[in-house]
């Protein structure tokens, strides 16, 4: 906030970083000090009011008629600015996440709790990836840095990610074999739909029914067309039904949070 007035455009990047951190500490500090200064019984109403006002900006902006010329209302510029400000706040979550990881793994490592070698692996991986990342970023012409980065990122992180995901395929085969049993009429119907979609979603389905003419009414019996129909009609209807339920639930949840009606361990804590 103050940073943009104190630091001129074109100033070194580190100065901007310091400025933003300073802004955050200053405003965060003021808010924290204010909350500490006011009596405890006023803290909750203060936060409830602040939450309500913050939510009100978005709601009013959405419903307030827009100027026909600009297609914006008086709150639209503020909403856009808030979007940018929220981005900065979100960035701080990265620092908080890193701090939590270090605290958790560090504590286990120092106390040599069971599995402490996994905590050590975290610190080694973290340091290696961060060190090589900075090296590759600040020495873009260094081939050694690029190779080291590629080895860690593609050779280890990428390969581990792909391996983890690929193993799901084995579980799917095993689970599908055990789960799809024609125990009832509904289960049989589901099995038939699954067969059609499984085969229709791969080229072999088109091959198996390639004898059926690709024109006229009969083309609807080709596996790829049957599969597409199941996905785009019954599946879509069912998905919509599910989403209506989810969205109504989300709306209720959002209203409860906006109006600070939410109950639970966090929301009922003494402030």
């Amino acid at each position: 906030m103050f940073t943009r007035y104190l630091i001129k455009p074109g100033a070194p990047q580190w100065l901007w970083v310091l400025g933003v951190i300073g802004d955050f500490l200053l405003f965060g500090g003021i808010l924290f000090a204010f909350l500490q200064a006011i009596p405890a019984r006023f803290r909750r109403p203060f936060i409830v009011t602040l939450t309500f006002l913050a939510g009100l900006i978005y709601s009013v902006e959405f419903f307030w008629p827009a100027d026909p010329k600009t297609q914006m209302n008086f709150l639209t510029p503020l909403r856009l600015k808030l979007g940018e400000a929220t981005k900065v706040v979100y960035a701080f979550a990265l620092g908080l996440g890193t701090y939590n990881l270090i605290r958790f793994h560090g504590s286990n490592l120092i106390r040599k709790r069971p599995g402490w070698h996994n905590n050590l692996a975290f610190f080694i991986s973290f340091a290696a990836m961060m060190g090589v990342g900075f090296w590759a970023y600040y020495a873009p012409s260094s081939k050694a840095a690029a190779n080291a980065y590629n080895m860690l990122f593609e050779g280890i992180v990428g390969a581990l990610g792909a391996t983890m995901f690929s193993t799901i395929g084995f579980y799917i085969v095993s689970a599908a074999y055990r789960a799809f049993r024609i125990r009832s009429g509904e289960a049989t119907l589901m099995l038939l739909a699954a067969f059609i979609v499984m085969l229709g979603q791969v080229p072999v389905g088109a091959y198996l029914t390639s004898g059926i003419p690709s024109g006229g009414v009969l083309r609807n019996l080709r596996l790829e067309n049957l599969s597409y129909w199941i996905l785009s009609q019954p599946n879509m209807a069912a998905q919509r039904g599910i989403w209506f339920g989810i969205e109504i639930g989300a709306l209720a949840m959002a209203l409860r949070q906006w109006l600070s009606l939410e109950r639970g361990s966090f929301f009922e804590r003494e402030l």
């Binding site: 085969v173 599908a176 799809f180 024609i182 499984m198 979603q201 791969v202 080229p203 072999v204």
Partner: peptide
Amino acid sequence: AAGALSTSHLLIVVLIILGNIGYV
């Protein structure tokens, strides 16, 4: 890879059919 996708889906279908023959 579409060929690999086809054979793996076929395998699942065949396994399910075998399991159901045994069950019935």
